[in-house]
Nucleic acid binder design. Structure first.
Lengths: 222, 222
DNA sequence: GTCTATATTTGGATAGAC
DNA sequence: GTCTATCCAAATATAGAC
């Protein structure tokens, strides 16, 4: 298999369309370490050697699976985005009023941020870099793809919001796009400040996700 | 004057403690170009040559005023932070209930983001990098200084929030820190998506700042 | 599939002319 | 104070052994 398609292959596999095997394990291990490095030191502050060191290997292993550092970063970004998308899609598909959907979606978003903070911090970093100067044409395609997914992600929230305005569960008159950008910003900002405390339980995480969501839905006025 | 103190000198001058002169003009011009480059291409995607090209000069000019690319980035960050701080401090100092203060502060924050989007996009980028791997001891000091300012910035909002809870203008029971982080996140996220349309008037900007603030204070429930 | 060793490039940084 | 020319380190990426 050509090196440049290897991670695409992997992407298919993890989507359950094929049996997973040794390839998947290797790639996931690399991605996990890369996500941690990028989160802690940023894209520019992370060298391939850093990632390799964290793996307990040398960079030969990484270059066997990924064409470039940028590709590696994109792949972490892609995976983080996929986890967000899956969680929110599921929250959306269960029924209820627009507001009920939106609440579930925001909670799912926040919870996914907390449970995958390394990947999601890279996603947020990546959004920053979406004008990333020196990209090859091929990287530009990856980037556009990711921005497209992000756009679809936002549209899910817009849709639920509109539904809520139609069914009366969300107030009229608000600028939908602005409102959604605000809510998503509040949750995305977790990538900056949230780090799990040791021993934090899933129940505590869910509670925090609920509190954040509640503030966005209900506001803070007394 | 030693090169490494030149921008400190400048910082003092722009704070009105001395007459401004040619030095200030030069430095501001560089900072403006750097802010644009960093915003458009990211820290890692921007080379000193890029900034120089945008200036219509060569990098000799930049290195005359700034020790390093990182220093240049820090200085843009510092200036962006200063503008935010000034705007919010002023909004805070006028009287009123805690909620009224908070409203003014959020509006001022949002408006400052819009009016200085290049600088403020760098500020947000910088927050990401606050664990920035390879820093010299000296850069670490700058970085810690900036994080300290950012912390004080957040505390202003916390203070207004608490006051509002005490005077009944803000609801009890909310987790103050979480609420503030949410609100600030919603506004900071503007660094990602906001770009002024051509011909956008200050009045339109103020209107947008008001709408964003209103959503954070009042929520979206119908 | 992973390693070691090495080639290559980019771009940060400096020296010294003007 | 700004330019040109140059140095040099860092780190990306590759070649080839194992």
């Amino acid at each position: 298999m050509a090196k440049n398609d290897m991670h695409r292959e992997w992407a298919l596999k993890t989507r359950g369309q094929e049996e997973s095997g040794a390839l998947v394990e290797s790639v996931v291990e690399i991605l996990d370490c890369a996500a941690l490095c990028f989160t802690e030191m940023g894209f520019q502050g992370t060298s391939i050697d850093d990632v390799a060191r964290r793996l307990g290997a040398t960079k030969g292993r990484i270059y066997h699976y990924f064409r470039s550092k940028t590709d590696l970063f994109f792949e972490v970004h892609r995976e983080g985005m996929r986890r967000l998308m899956d969680a929110v899609n599921e929250a959306m598909s269960a029924g209820g009023t627009g507001r009920e959907k939106l609440v579930r979606m925001l909670e799912a978003h926040a919870l996914t941020m907390m449970q995958n903070i390394a990947y999601e911090a890279v996603v947020v970093q990546g959004v920053h870099m979406h004008r990333l100067g020196a990209t090859t044409p091929e990287q530009r395609i990856s980037l556009d793809e990711l921005m497209d997914i992000r756009h679809k992600f936002e549209l899910l929230f817009v849709e639920a919001f509109r539904q809520g305005q139609a069914d009366g569960s969300i107030r009229q008159g608000a600028d939908v796009s602005l409102a959604v950008k605000g809510m998503l910003g509040a949750v995305n900002w977790m990538a900056i400040w949230y780090r799990p405390r040791s021993g934090e339980s899933p129940e505590q995480q869910r509670a925090m996700a609920r509190r954040i969501t509640e503030l966005q839905i209900g506001g803070i006025a007394g």
